[in-house]
Design a protein around this nucleic acid. Sequence first.
DNA 1: TGTCGGTGCTGAATCGGTTTAGCTACCCGT
DNA 2: ACGGGTAGCTAAACCGATTCAGCACCGACA
Lengths: 347, 347
Amino acid sequence: MTRQRSTLMDVAQRAGVSRTTASFVMTGRRDMRISGEAEQRVLQAARELDYRPNLLARSLRTNLSQTVGFISDVVASEPFAGRLIASSIATAIRHDHLLFVGESAGDPEVEQLLIRSMLDRGVGGFVYASLYTREVKLSPLLKTQPLVLLNCVSRSRGFPMVVPDEFGGGRSAALALLAAGHLDQIVLVGETPDHVLAGTERLSGITETLTVAGTELAGSIQSLWWPEPAYLAVSEFLAAGNRPTAFICLNDRIALGTYQAIHDAGLTIPTDISVVSFDDSDLASWVRPKLTSVAIPHIELGRTAIDLLLDPEREHGLHKVEMRLSARESVAAPKTRRVPVRSATQS
Amino acid sequence: MTRQRSTLMDVAQRAGVSRTTASFVMTGRRDMRISGEAEQRVLQAARELDYRPNLLARSLRTNLSQTVGFISDVVASEPFAGRLIASSIATAIRHDHLLFVGESAGDPEVEQLLIRSMLDRGVGGFVYASLYTREVKLSPLLKTQPLVLLNCVSRSRGFPMVVPDEFGGGRSAALALLAAGHLDQIVLVGETPDHVLAGTERLSGITETLTVAGTELAGSIQSLWWPEPAYLAVSEFLAAGNRPTAFICLNDRIALGTYQAIHDAGLTIPTDISVVSFDDSDLASWVRPKLTSVAIPHIELGRTAIDLLLDPEREHGLHKVEMRLSARESVAAPKTRRVPVRSATQS
DNA sequence: TGTCGGTGCTGAATCGGTTTAGCTACCCGT
DNA sequence: ACGGGTAGCTAAACCGATTCAGCACCGACA
């Protein structure tokens, strides 16, 4: 029923040559001398038999499996993570590689199990990805392997790390507001604990850009990165009579909560208040008005990580990928200032 | 530097037995007679050397790779898809298997390439997943392999197909409204083309349940499954003076657009209009009021598919997975009826 | 005493490739 | 006629496991 795969031996016999010769032809080695005529016979036979080399057998001998492991903490179950993985897979295919995908769910034992299972299957290297740009502690098993860190960094060096250029992203967000005419009534929404590099870097990008423009943040509203806490925090902030001209939200979910709070306060986006955000998730184009947001470059991140992993001369160290602003409808020129923000910095 | 992996030969030598004996011990075969003493020596040696069998070598001999292929059309880049994959991976690990993940992006050539690449690496079977519950045309290559269809069906039989119980989901949605007291002023939002089984089945579940309750849908609003078209269609519907007591939206994105339209019409959820939806995505708990939605059981879908694939006695045919209602805040009793829905059925 | 059966183990073949080492036939120069 | 070089090919080892076939030993039984 299931037609057997044909082997190199089959090809060799049909072409009337030895397995060795067939192997040389199929792997295209030019250092061994094969007559053009024999080469054609082998290629012809391979075509006729629809020959495909058994990669398991090849790997066993060469130790090259054309396979890499993709390990993440919880990245695979996050909404946007799919694109990171899809782009990694597509890039790997372009290099004739396939991806074993594993998710540790943050459990070091699961992670260890995944790594060992992949090594047992001869993976030639790993991409280790994290959901949040942060510092990670690497399993010793990984350190002895070709490795690229994706969306995270590690104290131990000696391998490439691919991260979004969060600083530049922060700058883009700030510049979008400055360009629209906002200056000293810009308020940040979110929180930036030290270990979340995405947050701290975005903040640096924002503040430095404002400093260069001769101004600074008018305040910041502490809030977890979810809609509900953001809604509550921003509602309270507005209820206290504060009237900033713009909010910078540290991600789209915060922006959603901020939208809801602004709306409930009877204000309009962007005429009363502008909003810019980070992530450029689907959500950004679903809300009304559509949200201007700095995109996380998932596609490029995945592509860069795999390209680096499979490049024998890969450069170690930090590789920053540009974050582009998706300009939509949530930013407009500020109205004439009415009520200034009172000392609202809670941090 | 990189300590070499130890081989079965190393273990055998350290234990003072032949490779054959070591192999029998390690694979736990009881049909070959090994003395308890020799067995202990081998196990001890394996422990000391941290021996792990080379799965490539084993597969080459046994044709059992402990590896399966997961192929999807565009599932991997959709928000919720991550959970499907993560749950498949977790289940596979429980069976000592690893997943090659591939995404065809709907391109048959890419799909073919992925399948062949996976076969070259000796996968023992495939899960073929689709984003939308629909009928698919299977590559001939797949049909000769152990195969489970996930979230899609095929005319060719002979393998298990795992799908959400969309009909039951429709019933749950309708029952939630009936239980709250809604009866003959319920309107559907979405569209149900024949090839999208999720839609047609959900509709059947809804209408049959209403029929049993002695009523029927008061109308249906045609709309693509995205927020903006839903917003426009529902806005128009409400502007025409229609005042249903409840909307059933065919997914959460439609529900978002519906929320926006209801809000713009000056109406309140759930006091003026109740809303139930399908998907139970993150969005459902982010909107205000929180959305009551029938969940797509991603975790169970992935688990079931892998369990079936790796069960040698797997049952062919359709496996339906229950869809549970996540009750939140968007359903309440209808107010006294005021303006009835005018013949609004546009389909 | 010879043989039969069971216990406990091992040598060698095998999976399907890659790669090393070497063989043969032919041409050329002397 | 012979030595040497080279083009073109192949036998066999090898990667690390599984597994078939069989060997050595021992006790029991006729």
